[in-house]
Design a protein around this nucleic acid. Structure first.
Lengths: 210, 210
DNA sequence: CATTTGCAGTAACAAAAGTTACACTTTTCT
DNA sequence: AGAAAAGTGTAACTTTTGTTACTGCAAATG
């Protein structure tokens, strides 16, 4: 584990903290599509991503979903962190976007390290900053953009996160993430294809403009 | 200042920290409508609200606006905090919702106190938590609600923040906050009035359902 | 191989939101 | 007082998004 840990966090944390993480943290693996954390779950530890990607979703009472953002190697989830410290339930769902490896750190250590290591404090604040920024971007897309632009942005983000121009998704899955209907997605995708920005195949979308 | 400070923060911070705040902080006053902080401003201090209310707005390149949330007594702006620590420009605009009194704390102290006072750490984390939660609620309204519900919610929030059922606003001002057009706001307000939920007058809206 | 199931395309229509235009009233300014 | 400006109400229309319904195709299943 140490090797992997150093690759992802070696430039951020000092030797001593890395050792503490290796000692206290628990390595976890999630398969693509697996629910890592659900809405209303009690949270007692936070994840440090080593490999893979996680998507964070919001859901309302009627079961409508919306993708908030993705997490990658070197990221942690500030919402989780926030929940941990406040002892509240999770406000979001976390699903493995692909096979993912991460280390779980118990709450007690989070507080301890915040007082003890400056690099940890910086990491925590940096993490809050990133997540707030991503939430702002999500708000921008919802408030200022039409569905066609939101859709293209979504495809580009997803391609980047999966490090592949070819996305293995159905129109229905895209519709869930954007909280719209399958028919709307199909319609707009067809338009994007005619504009030459993407290529449509069964169960897959190839994104040209990255 | 100490008296006011104790009223708003006495239950959160210890005596010693309150004295430090009184010593280092600078008292500021903003008149209703005044821009306290603008997009792309460099930020070197964070506000602690003593009295009044501040609204936080987002803007896109075309100049479209959207209200994100309100700050009240006892609040601070986590986005500001985030900007301070990361040395980045402000992502949002802060406007005094009514006459407001607040204390500005320089960045240097923020870092110092984070290491020194547990109560300060808790306050900072609690603040991040509140702001993240409010951003999530904003996202909920945008993603899951139609304009009529968003409008009613907005009126209720605004009434609460201003501690008055009667809001002194024009339809155009409401339209700016919700990023829609004046005509749409007038139309939906009329419907809300017919449903008996509000009362419309020139330059003012009385909210019945709180 | 026949049947079922999941996925995509598309038409037709409905609802929500945005736009343009204009009338009318109240307030402000000269 | 008279003119201009600001605020509101409403009609008519367009665009965007959501909904329902049906088609055809491909993959999976028995």
């Amino acid at each position: 584990m140490l090797q992997e840990l150093k690759e992802a966090y070696g430039f951020i944390f000092e030797e001593e903290l890395l050792k503490e993480i290796e000692h206290t943290g628990v390595l976890k693996i999630a398969r693509e599509g697996e629910i890592i954390m659900n809405i209303n779950d009690y949270i007692s530890s936070m994840p440090l991503l080593l490999e893979g990607a996680i998507k964070i979703l919001r859901e309302d009472k009627e079961g409508n979903e919306l993708l908030l953002y993705f997490l990658e190697r070197g990221d942690t989830c500030a919402l989780t962190l926030s929940c941990c410290l406040g002892q509240t339930k999770s406000e979001v769902r976390a699903v493995a976007e692909r096979d993912t490896r991460f280390i779980m750190i118990p709450v007690s250590k989070i507080e301890e390290w915040t007082a003890k290591y400056k690099s940890w404090r910086n990491f925590v604040f940096e993490s809050y900053h990133s997540r707030l920024t991503e939430m702002l971007e999500t708000i921008d897309t919802l408030a200022f953009m039409n569905m066609d632009k939101r859709l293209l942005r979504y495809l580009q983000d997803k391609a980047k996160i999966n490090q592949s121009e070819e996305l293995q998704v159905t129109h229905q899955q895209v519709a869930y993430d954007l909280n719209t209907s399958r028919v709307v997605v199909s319609r707009l995708l067809k338009r994007l294809e005619m504009e030459g920005k993407i290529l449509l195949q069964r169960n897959s979308i190839v994104v040209h403009e990255l």
